[in-house]
Every structure is written in structure tokens, then in C-alpha cells.
Design a protein around this nucleic acid. Structure first.
Length: 421
RNA sequence: GGAAAAGUGGCCGAGUAGGUUUAAGGCGGCACCCUGCUAAGGUGUUGUGUGGGGUAACCUGCACCGAGGGUUCGAAUCCCUCCUUUUCCGCCA
């Protein structure tokens, strides 16, 4: 949610930044409602003050045994007016809130301006794409041949785009999860969190999934609960409606969770393999920081994600997403893309975003500034470290051998207990 | 799932046959005073949100006693719904 005061004071600047995302965005309607809303609030406040003093008078008169019929009638009339204004105010408040909840974050000044994902900017590449001197296979063929992912039975049990790992596949998937969690907790200083995998609508609104992206999520019948699309949702909301002290910041938290996505708009895309499924595993990193330190913390978090790829020995590149491609709530985002031989290109495996105070304002996560004693919104940052299923796929493809086997990266072996599939 | 009790500020804890409660008091925090230092003591201060005025420090209105409704001239206090916690019963990994 954008700051209404900032919008009030600087509408042209906000509009200019929003139009970098999409020329159709603007805060004009919000300002219109804001003016009316404030006018009504002032009126209602004054009437409430009057009602209060008059009511007190009635109390005193009654104590003295005086007749209060006529003044009671007057105050009742004031009350009716107050009620009418309050209704109007609630209506305008809700209207304004709805508008604000549906306006995306303004991009950071350093986010490249662009009209589509084609305008994303590559920042750097690490490692060389493998060159095979034999006919390599896509990961779904390898997985099937080795019997480590059962695609057909996953579909039978649930639906298309559900997969079932088995044997060494299940073990490898678990090994990757443990490797990532150990790396972030033991080397990078994150606290491990195991959150609920379902979250209520207030939590979903806090990080920006609701109200706009309801159709992307699985909703429980008869309950105000959604399956989480990412650990970002529960973990970022841990301190919702709380005031932290400055010493508590920055907070580093990491969590493994399964992630559930309906993939409503992606029919026909990446239909084979592990790249796009309804349920996948992910280790997420989340930070709460002061506004001053958030750019630096965002960079460090991105490097923490890159470390995962480097230790696994997977070739990847970092891409700065342009204004047309960054997520709804983000002001800046780096994607990490891993080399996937079967696609002959780099595929997203991590998305590291800075949200500024946009999510904190929605979720009401604040801290007390030590110097001024005032409360301020924290900045929230998160990134995948990494998507586990896509890591699994990248390992199969990049480390496959001519004889059809797959060499397990050194760092995973203590978790898998085998060095080859 | 059933029954009972309870939810008041950072914490503890008064206040409910409706009306100087603009929520007592304590603890904690902060500032200052006293003191050779520390401890103790003294004085003051102490939340959140949202409006208005002012360049600003600041001044000022309104709202907030789990959440949302209702009754009333007036609600922390009465009524209804929901949520949470505790205890008991049932079920269960």
C-alpha cells in the first residue's frame, strides 16, 4: 500500500513512477476521494465533540432533577447526523482502501524502465553453460528413466501438474532442502522458521496476494484459509500489527515450505517436467530492515541466493527486472536464472525483491526509531534460496552423464548419502 | 465438537444496578534533581490511529478497553454475533 500522505503531497511524482510500470496506472481517483473523506471526517469530529459536551450537560441536569426532554431531543438529532456522516465516512474509507490495495508499489529509481520482460537487464553471469558431446536429455526423461519422479501417478493422485518424487528422487529433494536451510542458518545468519502452510485472508492481504490475485491461490472451503503460494506470506506477516524496537532489526528468517499455486494463467506453458507445477518445495529468505539499510540488505540477500547456485556448481545469471516485469508489491527485483540445457536458455530459479515499506504498510509492521522515538514502517525483503524442484531439475540436466547417470554435487552428498543416480 | 470462565495501555492490575474515567494505581521505560560513585530516594513524563492549525518545535479535535454490530441523550460498563485464551468432557496423530 502506498502512503496516502506521500500521494497527497506528491501526486505528480507518484503518477510518473507508476506509469513506468504501466501507463494506465494513476492515483488521481484516490486523491479525489481523499479530499472528500477528510472533509467529512472534520465535520463528523466536530459534531461528536458537540454531542459529548451536550450529553454531559444532560447528566448534570438529571442530577439536579431538571427536565431534560427538549435537550435530549436536540442531542438525538445531532446523533442522527453523526451516524449519517459516519456511514458516509466508512464508505469512503473502504473505497479508498480498496483503491490503494489495488495500486502496485512504485518502482525504485534504480529499476530499469521497460515495457516488457524483454527489457530486463542482465547484471552478470557466473559459470559456463555445459557443452555436451553426447545427446543430452531433458530432466523429465532422466527422472522417468531413473524412476525418481513418478509423473503419471502424481497426476492420478491429484491432477495434472502434480508430481510425486520417490526413492533417490525424494531423498535428493529432501537433501537440497536441508542443504539450503543449513547454508542460510549456519553460514548466513538466518533464523529457521517452520510456519503454517495455510494462511488467512488478512495475512494474504498483508503481503499483497489479496485482493488482486485471489484466483492464483487455493482456497479452503468453509474456512478463511488459503494454501500459501510461498513462505514469504506467513514469514513476512510474523510481526504484523506489531511494533519492533530498532535493536530487533534487521531480522533474518528462512523457511522451507511447500508452495501451492493454481497457475491459472499459464495453461500450455512448461507442461512437462518440474518447472511449473501446482505444488513445489521452496526455501525462502525473508528480511525485515530499516529503510536506510534495505538496499544493502537486498543485495546481500541476493548474494545469499547466488551462493546456493555457486556451491552446487550450476551456471546462472542475475537479471534486473524492468518496471514492467517486477512483482506487484516490489520496488526492485533481481531474478536468478539457472542454465537449463533442455530449454537452451536460463530459467528463473530465484526472485529476490525489495518491497520498501509497501508490504509493511499493508501488514502494519513497524519499529520504533531509536533517535526520534517515533514509529516507522520496516522495509521487507525476500527471495528464494532457492526453488527446490527447479534446482532438482537443473542438477539432473547439468550433471547428467553419457551413460544416463547423474553426478550429485559434492555439497549435497552428506545429505543424500549417495554420489550418483 | 460440547460446557464453563475470561479478554482493559509495553507488562501487572482497578473500574461494570450506564454520566467529571479526558481509564485509578503499580511495575517497566525516558528526562531531570539529590548524591564523592553505585544503590536507594524525589520530581516530571510515557500508547496507537486519524483530522485541523503551524516552516518547525508544538498546539488542538476525534476515535481506540479482543473484533464487529445494537440499545441509549450518553457505553470499558447493557444486549447480539464472531475471534482468542484457560479449564473440563468427547474425539484424535
Amino acid at each position: 500500500m502506498l502512503d496516502i500522505r506521500l500521494i497527497r503531497e506528491n501526486p505528480e511524482k507518484i503518477n510518473e513512477l507508476l506509469k513506468r510500470r504501466n501507463p494506465e496506472l494513476s492515483v488521481d481517483k484516490v486523491i479525489e476521494i481523499d479530499v472528500e473523506r477528510r472533509k467529512i471526517q472534520t465535520e463528523a469530529d466536530e459534531l461528536r465533540a458537540l454531542r459529548k459536551t451536550e450529553s454531559q450537560k444532560i447528566g448534570e441536569m438529571k442530577k439536579r432533577g431538571e427536565n431534560t426532554d427538549s435537550i435530549q431531543e436536540e442531542v438525538r438529532a445531532i446523533g442522527d447526523k453523526v451516524k449519517a456522516l459516519e456511514e458516509k465516512q466508512i464508505e469512503l474509507d473502504e473505497k479508498q482502501r480498496t483503491l490503494l490495495l489495488n495500486i502496485p508499489n512504485i518502482p525504485d529509481e534504480t529499476t530499469p524502465i521497460g515495457a516488457s520482460e524483454d527489457d530486463n537487464v542482465e547484471v552478470h553471469r557466473t559459470g559456463e553453460p555445459v557443452k555436451f558431446d553426447f545427446e543430452f536429455k531433458p530432466h523429465w526423461d532422466i527422472a522417468e528413466a531413473k524412476g525418481i519422479v513418478d509423473f503419471e501417478r502424481g497426476v492420478k493422485l491429484s491432477q495434472s501438474r502434480f508430481v510425486m518424487y520417490r526413492g533417490k528422487g525424494a531423498r535428493l529433494e529432501r537433501a537440497i532442502i536441508e542443504f539450503f536451510l543449513d547454508l542460510h542458518t549456519l553460514e548466513h545468519g538466518y533464523e529457521e522458521i517452520m510456519p503454517p502452510f495455510m494462511a488467512n485472508s488478512a495475512t494474504m492481504t498483508g503481503t499483497g496476494q489479496l485482493p488482486k490475485f485471489a484466483e492464483d491461490m487455493y482456497k479452503c472451503q468453509d474456512e478463511d484459509l488459503y494454501l500459501i503460494p510461498t513462505a514469504e506470506v506467513p514469514v513476512t506477516n510474523i510481526y504484523a500489527n506489531e511494533i519492533l524496537s530498532e535493536e530487533d532489526l534487521p531480522k533474518y528468517m528462512t523457511a522451507y515450505t511447500p508452495c501451492f499455486r493454481r497457475e491459472a494463467g499459464s495453461a500450455g506453458k512448461d507442461t512437462r517436467g518440474l518447472i511449473r507445477v501446482h505444488q513445489f518445495n521452496k526455501v525462502e529468505m525473508v528480511k525485515l530492515t530499516t529503510p536506510e539499510s534495505s538496499p544493502e540488505e537486498h543485495e546481500k540477500l541476493t548474494q545469499n541466493a547466488e551462493k546456493c547456485l555457486e556451491l552446487l556448481g550450476l551456471p546462472y545469471r542475475r537479471v534486473a527486472l524492468c518496471t514492467a516485469d517486477i512483482g506487484f508489491s516490489a520496488n526492485k527485483c533481481f531474478d536468478l536464472e539457472v542454465w537449463m540445457p533442455s530449454y537452451n536458455t536460463y530459467k528463473e530459479i530465484s526472485s529476490c525483491s525489495n518491497y520498501g515499506d509497501y508490504q509493511a504498510r499493508r501488514a502494519n509492521i513497524r519499529y520504533r526509531d531509536k533517535e526520534s522515538g517515533k514509529t516507522r514502517f520496516v522495509h521487507t525483503i525476500n527471495g528464494s534460496g532457492l526453488a527446490v524442484g527447479r534446482t532438482f531439475a537443473a542438477i539432473l540436466e547439468n550433471f547428467q552423464q553419457e551413460d544416463g547417470s547423474v553426478i550429485i554435487p559434492e555439497v549435497l552428498r552428506k545429505y543424500t548419502g549417495f554420489d550418483k543416480i
